[in-house]
Design a protein around this nucleic acid. Structure first.
Length: 516
RNA sequence: GGGCCGUUAGCUCAGUGGUAGAGCAUUUGCCUUUUAAGCAAGGGGUCGCGGGUUCGAAUCCCGCACGGCUCACCA
């Protein structure tokens, strides 16, 4: 095993070859290199939790019988003190625990196992918990079991995985060496768990509706296209579950929700991944205001349960999820955040007529104003997004959306031009979108027709006419309010992650050509 | 798709036209309570890819690939 290797041999290949040879040594000892099972008493993090409160004297005073443990873990550090003793750090991905192995404390065969070990290998140790003279909690090893081989070297022990590309493409490496990454995904899981319990406790039924749809609806977005072979049927990955969930409200479920993936064939950014997780929930007999109140309660409750506070750090800022959240109409927000515009402040008049809106949009740097045609609602929304969205750091409900850009929403009883709709912005991101659901089948059909007309004018994100949905509505859907919440973005807020890719385990990446 | 930045050893990075470097990892030797263990000696490189300029290119120029940020569109 120490023979000379040709100088031309690559360093990585050499390291892999060494590790394969070490694995062969395990097999030559008659041991399985990949055993099926290890009967543990503690995972590393549980052992640390249990023993770290006890100091050296306390541990010393306890009988060895009570300090016996059997712990598996991945070796993340190995400090050999000559040929007769060594310290190794075992990790379960969350915590680390040191093990102390010495030749006179383990059977000869186990020492032979130890001598084959490489960084990254999995082992199990039998031993007794103690503290070294520097006070480090450790296991004095009396027995050692080989559990699995790492044939490739671990990432840099000090820097970890700093290359974001490797972090996303090889998330497992990031997770092995970065407890913060592990924590991010644990917080995400807790968040989703909290939301489920929150809704379940309020009588919502969790359902699953088609991800593959014949008519992609419920949102303004471009879909992914696929095909069913035996039916010879073009299918679309859903852009939203909305229209199916409302069929269920029609079907008599008073409260339903779904947490699942949506797919939108759009660009990728720090706030967008082509597949993303959305919560949609619908409450019969409620309106947009009720959904807003429920949202405030949900977010504040989740923050309290997960972080013990409603104050969350967000980059340089601190976000308060304490209810109630601020409410601004879209126009108010555009005026408020448009007042320092270089070309002069935005006034009420600048937002009141089509020509004024076009002029204002131009002033906000929105290009090709003509593409919005004569739809003044689109212009207002564009202006709002241009001047206000990024400034909405604290939770803010934006209300009074133009009806023209809200074809699935009821309008306000006092103004058919304004949708009874809201969007919630936090940290400069759109986190939620909800409204009182349009349930008049004739009005819905008219709005679908208007969408189809938009599509014919070149808006490829405009909705399609869904006849089956109109038929469902025509049987009578009770009044209801619905809302969608971007789970990934909410997870960003809860983990202070400024990129959506940091809260998605395997974000979409272009395949790498030169790798095998 | 546009703009900016990046790509050098397995990892993290230095190297502004003149023989390809450091730390960690790896290999060998010493060390039985260390902890980014230590000490000593080695091995490991198509400098992202392809062209060009030059006596000479990791370095300058052009193109391409991949990645990040950002703008545009969306949640």
């Amino acid at each position: 095993m120490s023979e000379e290797r040709p100088a031309s041999e690559l360093s990585l290949a050499e390291q892999v070859a060494n590790r394969r040879e070490h694995r062969e040594e395990i097999r030559r000892m008659g041991l399985p290199a990949y055993p099926n099972r290890f009967a543990l008493t503690h995972l590393v993090s549980r052992a640390v939790e249990e023993w770290s409160p006890k100091d050296a004297a306390t541990l010393e005073a306890m009988p060895e019988e009570k300090r016996k443990v059997r712990v598996p873990g991945r070796i993340l550090a190995l400090r050999r003190m000559g040929k007769k003793a060594a310290f190794l750090d075992l990790s379960d991905g969350l915590s680390r625990l040191q093990a102390y192995v010495r030749t006179d404390a383990v059977p000869e065969a186990d020492w032979k196992i130890f001598e084959t070990l490489d960084l990254g290998d999995h082992i199990g140790v039998d031993g007794v918990v103690f503290r070294t003279k520097t006070g480090e909690l450790s296991i004095k090893v009396h027995g050692l079991t080989f559990l699995s081989k790492s044939l490739r070297p671990m990432p840099d022990k000090w820097h970890g995985v700093t290359d974001v590309e490797i972090r996303y493409r090889q998330r497992y490496l990031d997770l092995i060496v970065s407890p913060e990454t592990r924590r991010t995904f644990e917080v995400r899981a807790k968040l989703v768990g909290y939301i489920r319990r929150f809704l379940d406790a309020r009588g919502f039924l969790e359902v699953e509706t088609p991800m593959m749809q014949i008519i992609p609806g419920g949102a303004a977005a471009r879909p992914f296209v696929t095909h069913h072979n035996t039916l010879d049927l073009p299918l679309y990955l859903r852009i939203a579950p909305e229209l199916y969930l409302k069929r269920l409200i029609t079907g008599g479920f008073p409260k339903v929700y779904e947490i699942n993936r949506n797919f939108r064939n759009e660009g990728i950014s720090t706030q967008h991944n082509p597949e993303f997780t959305m919560l949609e929930f619908y409450t019969a007999y409620a309106d947009a205001r009720d959904q807003m109140a429920l949202t405030e309660e949900m977010f504040a409750g989740a923050a309290l349960e997960i972080h013990g506070t409603t104050e969350l750090p967000w980059g340089e800022n601190k976000i308060s999820l304490a209810a109630p959240f601020q409410r601004l109409t879209m126009k108010e927000a555009a005026i408020e955040y448009g007042k320092n515009l270089r070309s002069g402040p935005i006034t009420e008049e600048d937002l009141s007529t089509l020509p004024a809106l076009r002029k204002t949009a131009g002033r906000c740097g929105i290009e090709d104003v003509e593409r919005f045609g004569d739809v003044s609602g689109k212009l207002l929304a564009e202006i709002f997004e241009a001047v206000a969205e990024e400034h909405l750091i604290q939770p803010t409900f934006i209300i009074d959306y133009p009806a023209e850009i809200s074809p699935l929403s009821k309008t306000r009883p006092d103004d058919p031009g304004i949708a009874d709709r809201f969007e919630l912005f936090i940290g400069g991101m759109e986190v939620a979108n909800g409204f009182s659901e349009l349930n008049d089948p004739d009005e819905q059909a008219d709005k679908f027709r208007a969408q189809v007309a938009e599509r014919e004018k070149g808006d490829d994100e405009a909705m399609l006419f869904d006849e089956d949905y109109i038929e469902a509505l025509s049987y009578g859907m009770p009044p209801a309010a619905g809302e969608g919440i971007g789970i990934d973005r909410l997870a960003m807020l809860f983990t202070n992650s400024l990129s959506i890719r940091d809260v998605i385990l395997f974000p979409l990446m272009r395949p790498r050509g030169e790798r095998r």
